[in-house]
């Protein structure tokens, strides 16, 4: 797959956008601006970015509790997301959902999910609709290593294979489900090994190499678009921060974290693009500056927006 210069720069920009957003959310959470739980995507940006580079607004994704990166990569609006994180009326879900439930159905983003393993059946369902309606859209299911052990995930993959649904299951294997390490929670080295049980392709990629992710996803997505059924792509990656903000991470080693920081997907691509002379130091600064400006505007929008009025409490339960 030959990625154009534009595509490479766009992926770089998307990853930096996710990183700056998440780092700011960490600060705002610590400062008490954001209530509830937040699960940040820092370190895993290449997965959502590489996969979503192959999707259009007409394609669907299902996300997870760690969903900010998926939303940004799929083209979501950080203003509306930030306002939602603040619990404001102007947010994506009018303040009713928060970080774990952000959705943008117009962009095919079928929601972050508070239930681990909640997404895979939904993705297969969206894929069923694509197949049934005969359009060439596909669905992508992002799910964690932890989620790979839920019955719902197995059931969704099996059914997708039986029905040859146009869905790609993208496993984000960051080695941990909260404190539980894949060493203890799985009996095969790779989530992708399980693909054999559903008779679908299963591939393992370096989840911190956005180009590799993009290429693997392109193959799965094209296959799905051609009516050849589902596939499973496992992206090996790592979260730099705690499971949620405030997690002291006593269950993992600092050395392990440092090792993975060496493989940080953003400096990796940046270095490559500088070497290829697609980027210059000043261009990097320009990109980062523009993203910071958008982020500041999003924060200001969130800050200045009102909280929802309590009169809306029981609205939206039924159509």
């Amino acid at each position: 797959m030959d990625l154009t210069n534009e595509q490479l720069i766009k992926m770089y920009t998307t990853m930096v956008k996710i990183r700056t957003f998440e780092n700011r959310v960490a600060e705002l959470f610590a400062g008490g601006k954001i209530p509830g739980f937040v699960h940040l995507y820092v370190g895993e940006e290449a997965v959502a970015t590489g996969v979503c580079a192959n999707l259009t607004d007409k394609d669907y994704i299902t996300s997870t509790h760690r969903g900010h990166g998926h939303l940004i990569a799929k083209g979501g609006d950080i203003k509306l997301m930030m306002a939602e994180l603040f619990g404001k009326k102007t947010g994506y879900c009018k303040g009713k959902g928060g970080s774990m439930h952000i959705a943008d159905l117009d962009l095919g983003i079928m929601g972050a999910n508070g239930i681990v393993g909640g997404g895979p059946p939904l993705a297969s369902g969206a894929a069923l609709a694509c197949q049934y309606l005969g359009n060439d859209s596909v669905a992508v299911c992002f799910f964690g290593d932890g989620a790979s052990n839920q019955g719902t995930t197995h059931e969704a993959m099996n059914l997708a294979s039986c029905w040859k649904l146009p869905v790609v299951f993208v496993n984000e294997n960051n080695m941990y489900g909260i404190s539980s390490c894949t060493r203890d929670s799985m009996c095969v080295p790779n989530v992708a090994d399980r693909a054999a049980g559903y008779d679908i392709p299963g591939v393992v990629v370096d989840g911190n190499d956005v180009v590799a992710v993009c290429e693997a996803a392109a193959e799965g997505i094209n296959r799905a678009r051609q009516g050849k059924g589902p596939s499973l792509i496992e992206c090996k990656t790592y979260r730099h921060r705690g499971h949620f903000e405030g997690d002291p991470c006593a269950y993992r080693d600092d050395a392990e974290l440092e090792e993975w920081k060496e493989k940080d997907p953003i400096p990796r691509l940046e270095k490559k693009l500088l070497e290829m002379e697609l980027l210059t130091e000043s261009k990097v600064e320009e990109i980062k500056g523009a993203l910071q400006k958008d982020l500041a505007a999003a924060e200001q929008f969130a800050e200045e927006s009102p909280f929802p009025d309590v009169s809306v409490l029981t609205e939206d339960v039924y159509t």
Partner: peptide
């Protein structure tokens, strides 16, 4: 009230 639990603090408190 008969609705899921909302996120936004003023709604949750209500």
């Amino acid at each position: 009230p008969f609705c899921p639990v909302p996120f936004s603090p003023p709604l949750e408190q209500a």
